[in-house]
Design a binder for these strands. Structure first.
Length: 791
RNA sequence: GCCCAGGUGCUGGAACUGGUAGACAGGCAUGGUUGAGGGCCAUGUGUCCAUUAGGGCGUGCGGGUUCGACUCCCGCCCUGGGCACCA
């Protein structure tokens, strides 16, 4: 009986593809283009597990399908090779991250090639390669040399800003800039010295240096951007994160908040991703209103989306960090306020969040005048008001807002009903938008929606406020106090940041003896001797992980270009990504930053598209199925799954290769855990049965399934088909090898259909009608399935 | 709390715009082939009633629209994910 010799078959054709370069594509063609992109991996030391190729397999099917349908297909692969793990490894072993990275990449490429992907490897990029990060640095410079003109609604060269400043100062300029940017005349501007000019322009530049509150992670020794922090812990490593003030490079992504939001309507991305990005950008419509302080020139400006509730205001609350606090606090309250502010300052973000139910606050002693009723309302400070959002102050409406309600109850402040549909209980406020407004002067009788409109126009007429849109999105911190990242091409002369000339790029990472901060607490780059530009100190921070991945998809179009990040011809031909495949975990990181950089490059005229990926598909995560043995506490005895109820047991991870159908190979387990070699095993029905749980696939949980072994045993085609067979591509699911035999059998039978002994054997008879019907039905079904993924 | 997905046999999952629910595969069962095991082949497998023929009931729960509903509408329950002192 002839055999389906997948191993020989696959090796033969893979060698053939390589030798004849059949997947290499030129940047021109008569055919229409199609760009299929995978999110490039970070080459970790653990190698690929079966979860990684899931998306690559799906996108490879799309690439092959499009080729067969007459498209000129760009299907590249590369490596996101800067990152923390290689650096942590370097700290422990002294091994240069470049060396480990190289090793890991080679391993990844081997594994990927064995899986038979149709990548054009001649276009491979690596973000840690100087020929690549030269252009990351170049784009950084371009962003630095730009400002955002709200009037033209795009980024422009900083030269156009300087021209306006020279001519008429900044009074007429509507730009995305620091909140504390002073209004100056052209005279004042011209009288600035070099340093003053430089620091003034930093308030406008799209990448800028400023003293800001950052997420500082002491364990990692670096700052992190908001998306890298989850619930007060670092996303990588799970270390605590605290707030800290320090000078930092940031990217003014907030300038693009509106366009990042509206752009979502133009791209075919999964609804959950769009939703996450919308939430993250957090646009809300409302008004800013001034409340005059009694017996004072000062005003409190608040942001509200519910101006219809303004007659329900019975007090005001400032964030402890608000600059107004010191100004309006009365002498009697000074001491209480000071100690509250001091305490708030020393609390970490985590404490503040975990302590949310504890209501705290202190009265400033001052009163604000209600702009419509003229009544006096007390001004408090409390840390439930966030300094970073809106104006850092709120008008408190306890009847309509739960937080205000809780605060009012706690400090015994009045609660006023302002809507006839409000049902207020002893413990709950009611933010209803039904019903009619009551107790509210000129707003009485209106619906909340009408009252919001009327309220805002009244405020504007009286000149005490403006219609206002607010965003939650914050500027992205760009510096990392780390070694293994792109050097920021900046040096300091006279404390003024200056950029390295284009001709001198790339600024290459210097070698250092140890990958730790210096004794003075400077980042690792501080250890490099000769790390200066003509005697001026270089910037010591490096770029964050998302820098290279924010534009790599353009580099694939023209990866070897030494003159430009990508030639116009290549950009003209390839334009954008038609099909992008990757994980949804990058929703507020890579997938947002890359959109930002794309819009920026578009504004500055370097590319023709405002969104780089028309279609995005998220493959689900493949989880591991961990197996457990149960050790009786304080003993050397293991009990089978069904018996553990009668003991106090500790579950122990068991390597899944020692378990078949949940039955443990006890002898192998004893070898695997030497401390169990003498252990006693209590069995059920003569077997030791393991428990199981679905967890993340990881080495430490002994649940990793390696694709190499499956390729060896069944072949790449079987593995690829089986991964696609597992279920919908978007769904997360635990890996389970049980069903792979079915696919393997199918391929064996399929092969046997066309072979007699080992020879290809095809019938010369014309196909029957019935045969043609099945053939065309099958073609249609497959075409429809692939189209439904890629259209 | 708010916002997204989703809920179909023992399991993974099919079912295009409303038209024979459960394709395909795994598992399980029975039989064949084999010295045995494995492999391979065949048959069966939603559920209940019935020896058969056949019939009743079935897509989370309750209601509705329709000649006809897994599919559309309303309410509820559950699961997964996201956001969350955001004013």
């Amino acid at each position: 009986m002839a055999e389906y010799n997948f191993s020989a078959l696959e090796k033969k054709w893979q060698a053939d593809w390589k030798e004849n370069k059949i997947y290499e594509v030129a940047n021109t063609s008569e055919k229409p283009k199609y760009y299929v992109l995978d999110m490039f991996p970070y080459p970790s030391g653990a190698g690929l597990h079966v979860g990684h190729p899931l998306g690559y397999i799906a996108s490879d099917i799309v690439a092959r399908y499009k080729r067969l349908n007459g498209f000129h297909v760009l299907h590249p692969m590369g490596f996101d090779s800067f990152g923390l793990p290689a650096e942590q490894y370097a700290i422990q072993t002294g091994q240069h991250p470049a060396v480990t990275t190289e090793t890991n990449i080679n391993r990844y490429k081997e594994q990927l090639e064995a899986l038979g992907f149709s990548y054009d490897w001649s276009r491979e990029v690596r973000t840690s390669d100087p020929s690549f990060y030269k252009w990351t640095q170049w784009i950084f410079k371009l962003i630095y040399h730009s400002w955002y003109n709200n009037a033209s609604n795009r980024a422009e060269s900083i030269e156009t800003l300087i021209a306006i400043l020279d001519k008429e100062g900044n009074a007429t300029i509507d730009a995305a800039c620091d909140d504390d940017t002073p209004v100056i005349t052209s005279e004042e501007w011209k009288n600035y010295n070099e340093k003053e000019k430089a620091s003034f322009l930093l308030k406008y530049r799209l990448t800028y240096l400023s003293e800001t509150t950052v997420n500082w992670c002491p364990a990692l020794g670096t700052v992190l951007s908001n998306d890298e922090v989850k619930d007060g812990y670092s996303e990588r490593g799970g270390h605590p994160v605290v707030k800290k003030n320090m000078p930092q490079w940031s990217m003014r992504i907030t300038a693009y908040a509106d366009r990042l939001l509206s752009g979502l309507d133009t791209i075919d991305w999964p609804a959950p991703i769009k939703e996450i990005q919308r939430n993250w950008i957090g646009k809300s419509y409302g008004a800013e209103i001034d409340f005059q302080i009694e017996n004072s020139e000062e005003k409190i400006r608040v942001f509200t989306t519910r101006i219809d509730t303004i007659f329900g205001v019975t007090f005001m609350v400032l964030a402890p960090e608000s600059k107004l606090v010191q100004v309006i606090t009365t002498a009697e309250q000074q001491e209480a306020v000071n100690s509250y502010v001091e305490a708030a300052k020393n609390r970490s973000e985590r404490d503040r969040m975990s302590d949310a139910k504890n209501i705290t606050g202190v009265f400033t002693g001052s009163y604000a005048i209600h702009p419509f009723s003229g009544e006096k309302v007390p001004v408090w400070i409390a840390d439930y008001v966030l300094a970073g959002y809106g104006t850092g102050a709120v008008m408190a409406v306890p009847s309509g807002d739960q937080r205000d309600f809780d605060f009012a109850k706690h400090f015994d402040l009045p609660i006023v009903r302002i809507n006839d549909a409000q049902h207020i209980t002893e413990t709950e406020a009611d933010p209803t938008k039904d019903g009619k407004i009551i107790n509210s002067g000129f707003l009485d009788g209106l619906s909340p929606k009408e009252a919001i409109e009327k309220g805002i126009s009244e405020v504007e007429t009286k000149g005490i406020g403006i219609r206002k849109v607010n965003f939650k999105l914050r500027d992205a911190i760009f510096g990392r106090q780390r070694y293994w990242g792109e050097p920021i091409p900046v040096y300091y002369s006279d404390e003024i940041p200056k950029l390295i000339d284009d001709q001198k790029l790339p600024v290459e990472l210097p070698s250092i003896d140890e990958y730790l901060p210096t004794e003075d607490g400077d980042p690792p780059l501080g250890r490099a001797s000769d790390w200066n530009h003509e005697g001026n100190a270089f910037e010591l921070s490096t770029m964050p992980g998302w820098a290279g991945s924010s534009w790599y998809f353009f580099r694939y179009m023209d990866p070897k270009n030494e003159e430009k990040f990508c030639s116009e011809d290549a950009l003209n031909y390839w334009q954008d990504v038609d099909f992008y495949m990757g994980g949804s975990e990058h929703a507020t990181g890579h997938l947002l930053y890359s959109r930002f950089w794309t819009k920026f490059l578009y504004d500055r005229g370097y590319i023709q598209v405002e969104e780089y990926a028309k279609k995005l598909v998220n493959q689900g995560m493949i989880q591991g199925r961990s197996s457990f043995a149960y050790r009786v506490k304080d003993s050397n005895k293991y009990v089978s799954y069904g018996l553990k109820g009668s003991y106090d047991v500790t579950p122990i991870h068991v390597d899944i290769s020692l378990v078949h159908n949940d039955v443990l190979d006890v002898a192998a387990f004893k070898a695997f855990r030497p401390d169990a070699s003498e252990a006693e095993f209590e069995l059920e029905d003569g077997k030791y049965v393991c428990g199981w749980e679905v967890e993340k696939m990881s080495k430490s949980k002994y649940n990793v399934v390696n694709p190499d072994e499956l390729v060896e045993r069944y072949g790449a085609d079987t593995l690829r088909m089986y991964e696609m067979f597992l279920g919908p591509i978007e769904a997360s699911k635990p890996w389970n090898t049980n069903g792979i035999e079915g696919v393997f059998k199918f391929l064996k039978k399929f092969w046997a259909l066309f072979h007699t002994h080992d020879q290809l054997d095809l019938s010369e008879d014309p196909a029957t009608k019935a045969e043609l019907k099945i053939l065309h039905g099958t073609i249609k079904k497959i075409a429809d399935d692939v189209e439904s993924l890629s259209l």
